[in-house]
Amino acid sequence: MIAWFGDPSHWQGSAGIPARLLEHGVICLWSMALAITIALPLGVWLGHVRRLGMTVTSVGNLGRAIPTFALLILLASWEPIGVSDLAAIIALAVFAIPPILTNSYVGIREVDARATDAARGMGMTGRQVLQQVELPLSVPVIAAGVRTATVQVVATATLAALVGGGGLGRFVVDGFGRQDPTLMFAGVLLIAITCIAVEGAAAALQRVITPRALRPPTPSLLPRHRPAPSVLWKTTAALDTPPPR
């Protein structure tokens, strides 16, 4: 395994790690761009006008129920799309839409009604209420949706290799085809590392775009409220003591 990663030839050319990583990234970027373009404005707008809540929730649940793998095969076997990265991009976008749509809708919808009422009452237009009050206050929820979708897409983009696309999934699929466990495992490891890195980056980005006052306090390594030892001991003692007859 270490030898595989140490081999310079695996870091070069169109089948090398950097090239596959780039392919993976491009597939993810396109599918996320597609999903955000569709789901974010739609969710935000529906939340603002407070309409079709049931529909949004249903679409969200339905979307989660669509098997991405089946959709991928279906798209790849359809003539105009065929076996390509495009099939993967569309399938992944469909996969990414539900969390973005639901969170955008809920995020806007759940903004404190008193804040929006005050905003309207002070003479903000609907657009100003959305831009100055609803959107900033819902950044944490909307960003969480996008972040969830991103990590899921990065992990699932592995499937692109099954329909002839590129990406890190190639190592796994090729390893499987050649009965080469080292190659397969190296691929899995790369995907896992990529996902963790993306998750970390997404979390950092989410923090940066969240208005200062709405940011959660910096997590401390030590738990803030440690139960007093005596309390712990009492609890344990109480459990040990048989109930009185």
Binding site: A115, G121, P136
Partner: peptide, 11 residues
Amino acid sequence: YVIQQVGLFGH
């Protein structure tokens, strides 16, 4: 316009 529990903008 002032309402109950104010409706200040938290951000």
